[in-house]
Write a protein that binds this DNA or RNA. Structure first.
Lengths: 230, 230
DNA sequence: GCAAAAGTGTTAACTTTACACCCATGT
DNA sequence: ACATGGGTGTAAAGTTAACACTTTTGC
C-alpha cells in the first residue's frame, strides 16, 4: 500500500441532487456557499468524504450537515472526475440523486460551509459553482427517464394529491402536454392509486378527489414482473 | 487545498467491464492477476488513475495496458467505494462498461500486472478478485436493461450477422425465449438492418441471409425522436 | 350566473401475441 | 432421403390516440 499511496494523493467528495415539486414547478435543493472558492454561489449540497466512511453514508451525512435533511434515500447518479473540475486540486465527486416532498422538510444548514439551503426553481437557475450545472443537467435527464418507467412522481407530491397535480408533474418534467382522459385512464388502470375519500377544500371550482399512492401494491406487482410505464 | 489534503489521502481506480458474444454465449473479458493481492485470481481489467488523467482517459489507458485493446468507447457504470472493498486501503473504483466484437481483437497484456487477458463465459465464472463479482452483476443488469431499449446487440455481433444470431443474443442475455416470426417482424420493421446480399457459407442447412446494422439510419431516426425497443 | 377546473366514454388506428408449415442445403 | 435451421402470414386480443361536453364549487 505504501507504494500505492506514494504515487499521488487525491480526494473524493459527494454532491447531492435533490429534486422537489411545488406549485406546479420542478424544484432543486441548493446551498449558498459560505466559503471560497465560489463563495456566495449557489451549489449542490456536497462535501469531502471521510476516511472511514462509505460513499452512501457520506452522501447522507453531507446532505444532513448542509441542509438539515435526514434519512433521505439517495441513489448514485454518476461520478465526475475531470482533471480541471475543481480549482483547488484533484477532487473527484460522486453525485447522488433523490426526490423528496418539499413541504415535509425544514431546511437549516448545520455548518457555515453553507450560508443557507433553499429550494430553487429548476427551470430558472443562475450558473452554479464548479461543474454543478453539468451534474444537474445529467440528473435532470435521469429524472425524465425514470419518470417514464418507474412510479416516482409520487415521491415528489404530498401524500394526498389530485390526478391533475400528478398530470402537471408529468407535463412539467417531461416538457410535453398530455391528454387528460388518456392520462387518467392509464394511471388508474394500474390500480396503484387509492382514493383517500377526501376532496380538495376551499377551491373556487369543483373539488377534486385526493388519491394516495399504494406502495405495497406496487411492490407486490413488481415482484410478479409488472412494469410501470407512462 | 493544503488543509483539504491534510485530512486524509485516498486513491481511485478504474475497472472495465467488457462484454462480448461468441458461439452463442455471453462473454466477459477478464485478466489473470500477476500481483498480490488476489494473485492468480481472475479480475476485471483495472488499475489506479493517474494524477493528471481524466477518468475516461484512465479507463482507456488501463484497458489498453492490461488487454491490448485500443480505442474502445466505454461509458460509466457505477462507482464502488465501500470502506472495506480493497484489502490495502481506501481505494474507490469507478467501473466502466462496453460491448465489443470478440473476433475483432487480439489480447496481449502489456504489463505483468496481468498475466493474461482472456474471454470467459459469463454464465460460468469462478469468484473474482476484490468485489468484482458484484461489479459484474451490476453491469449485467445494465446490459439487460440497455439491450431492451437501445440497439446495442449489434455491437456484440460481427459486422454481418443472421437474424437467428441476433435473436439468440437477445435470448441469452435476456434469459427468455422469443418467438421467431414476431422477432423478425419487429426488428425488420425498424428499417435498421440492411441486407448485405451475402449468405452464410458451408452450413449444412439452408443458408441464412447476412444483415448489417445501419448505424447512420439509426442516428437520423433518433434525432427525430425514434425509440428503439424490443 | 359565471369562471374555473373536475370528471367522464367511444371509436379508429395500431401493436402485440399466438401459432405451423414449406424451403434450401450438406451429408 | 433425411436432418438442420431458414424463412414466411394471419387473425384475435390488447393498447394507444384522438377528441368535447357536463358537473361542481366559490365568488
Amino acid at each position: 500500500m505504501q507504494d500505492l499511496y506514494s504515487d499521488f494523493h487525491s480526494i473524493f467528495s459527494v454532491d447531492c441532487v435533490i429534486f422537489g415539486f411545488d406549485k406546479g414547478e420542478l424544484k432543486i435543493l441548493l446551498i449558498e456557499r459560505g466559503e471560497e472558492p465560489y463563495m456566495d454561489y449557489l451549489a449542490l449540497p456536497g462535501n469531502i468524504v471521510g476516511e472511514d466512511e462509505d460513499l452512501d453514508a457520506a452522501a447522507g451525512r453531507v446532505l444532513n450537515e448542509l441542509t438539515g435533511l435526514n434519512n433521505i434515500y439517495m441513489e448514485q447518479l454518476h461520478t465526475f472526475g475531470e482533471v480541471g473540475r475543481h480549482p483547488q486540486g484533484r477532487i473527484i465527486t460522486v453525485a447522488y440523486f433523490s426526490l423528496i416532498k418539499v413541504k415535509r422538510h425544514e431546511l437549516y444548514p448545520k455548518i457555515p460551509f453553507a450560508k443557507k439551503a433553499e429550494w430553487r426553481t429548476f427551470h430558472d437557475l443562475p450558473k452554479l459553482a464548479f461543474d454543478h450545472s453539468i451534474i444537474l443537467e445529467k440528473a435532470y435527464r435521469k429524472l425524465q427517464r425514470k419518470l417514464r418507467y418507474e412510479p416516482i412522481g409520487f415521491e415528489l407530491l404530498p401524500d394526498k394529491f389530485t390526478l391533475t397535480q400528478l398530470q402537471q408533474l408529468y407535463e412539467v418534467i417531461l416538457e410535453k402536454e398530455i391528454d387528460k382522459r388518456n392520462f387518467r385512464k392509464k394511471i388508474l388502470s394500474y390500480g396503484l392509486l387509492t382514493e383517500s375519500g377526501e376532496k380538495q377544500k376551499n377551491v373556487s371550482h369543483r373539488a377534486a378527489r385526493l388519491y394516495r399512492f399504494n406502495k405495497r401494491r406496487y411492490n407486490s406487482l413488481r415482484k410478479i414482473g409488472f412494469n410501470f410505464e407512462i
